[in-house]
């Protein structure tokens, strides 16, 4: 079912947790709400779930305004960051809880619970208690419990943040697979950009109670709407300066070719992704600060135009520069972006 969040405003005293946040999700789409802590993403989720009221704005689910609906009548599945499994109930009772509240008869309930546990690959653990499960298993029980009620919308709050790095990678794949299998419209709240990229069809980047940009992972990465978006999604070299006729002149006086800005703004800066930079005969002057071996690649730390630090991956086999050495960096016009200053 489609989700539409329109201009949510929520104030706590003088501070605004939500300051006109809007986003949407198409039926069956997975959208990630990405932002640093305190940006309002959790408040957005809680407003959608009905645990908090917005001061103004609307949440529409399948065209229906949810504002007046209490949480227990919204048919929204929720997976909490701490999983919130009921400790005194078995896995089966946890997963079947929502069905029970809907008055489903015991045999039908048992069948549905079995289906859900099969979906998350936990068949056979029906009689266990949450305390007897690993973190990854608890996470999957929480997911099965939320999906059992066939929700109109699935909300995931930092779904993988409580798991260790290796498990996170496996579960990411599995979660993605389960989400596409059930086809439920899903909103994932996360502060981890890699998680957002891996799981979502589209990403909404949030800051200070507003959604700055909503687009596919590729769009938000390659065509960021603002400097904040650019720097939040991976490494970025940000240069201030002036643009005129296909050429950006940095404050250091270097002229770099680049396409015209896509969006109007009072001020633009030049965004270069460090992995697209390469040493060249001409371009941005930089001084080597140091080099570091990082397992899969060599990384070289540089000071660009004596004021902006950047870390660049160094090609395999290339000779490592020495600290203090001066060189120039180049990026092709197609890889440079003019992005609005925040």
């Amino acid at each position: 079912m489609s989700l539409e969040v329109q201009n949510l405003v929520r104030r706590f005293g003088r501070a605004a947790a939500l300051d006109g946040a809007s986003l949407d999700a198409q039926p069956g789409e997975v959208v990630a709400l990405l932002g640093p802590s305190g940006c309002g993403k959790t408040t957005t989720l809680r407003v959608i779930a009905g645990f908090e009221q917005a001061d103004s704005g609307h949440v529409l689910l399948g065209g229906q305004d949810l504002s007046r609906l209490p949480p227990h009548r919204r048919d929204i599945g929720l997976v909490f960051q701490d999983y919130a499994l009921f400790p005194h109930m078995t896995v089966a009772d946890n997963v079947g809880y929502g069905l029970r509240r809907r008055g489903m008869a015991a045999p039908a309930r048992a069948a549905r619970v079995a289906d859900m546990l099969e979906l998350v690959r936990l068949s056979g653990l029906e009689a266990r208690r949450p305390a007897q499960l690993s973190g990854g298993q608890q996470q999957r029980v929480a997911l099965a419990r939320a999906l059992a009620i066939a929700p109109r919308l699935l909300l995931l709050d930092e779904p993988l943040s409580n798991l260790d790095a290796r498990l996170r990678a496996t579960l990411q794949l599995e979660l993605r697979q389960i989400l596409s299998q059930v086809g439920t419209t899903t909103l994932i709240v996360t502060h981890d950009q890699e998680e957002a990229m891996a799981l979502a069809d589209r990403i909404a980047i949030m800051r200070q109670g507003r959604v700055l940009q909503l687009g596919t992972p590729r769009e938000v990465c390659e065509e960021p709407a603002t400097r904040f978006v650019a720097e939040f999604l991976g490494r970025a070299l940000w240069l201030e300066g002036e643009y005129a006729d296909g050429v950006f002149t940095t404050r250091g006086g270097t002229r770099m070719p680049c396409p015209p800005p896509r969006l109007r703004a009072a001020r633009h800066g030049l965004l270069l992704r460090p992995h697209l930079l390469r040493p060249a005969e001409e371009g941005l002057p930089a001084v080597v600060i140091g080099a570091q071996f990082r397992g899969h690649a060599m990384q070289v730390a540089l000071m660009v135009e004596e004021r902006v630090p950047v870390v660049v991956d160094w090609p395999h086999g290339a000779v490592l520069p020495r600290p203090g050495e001066a060189l120039r960096l180049w990026a092709d016009a197609g890889e440079a972006r003019l992005v609005a200053e925040d």
Partner: peptide
């Protein structure tokens, strides 16, 4: 969150 989980489930 336990209470809220129960409420979200109906």
């Amino acid at each position: 969150s336990h209470m809220e989980a129960a409420m979200s489930l109906g």
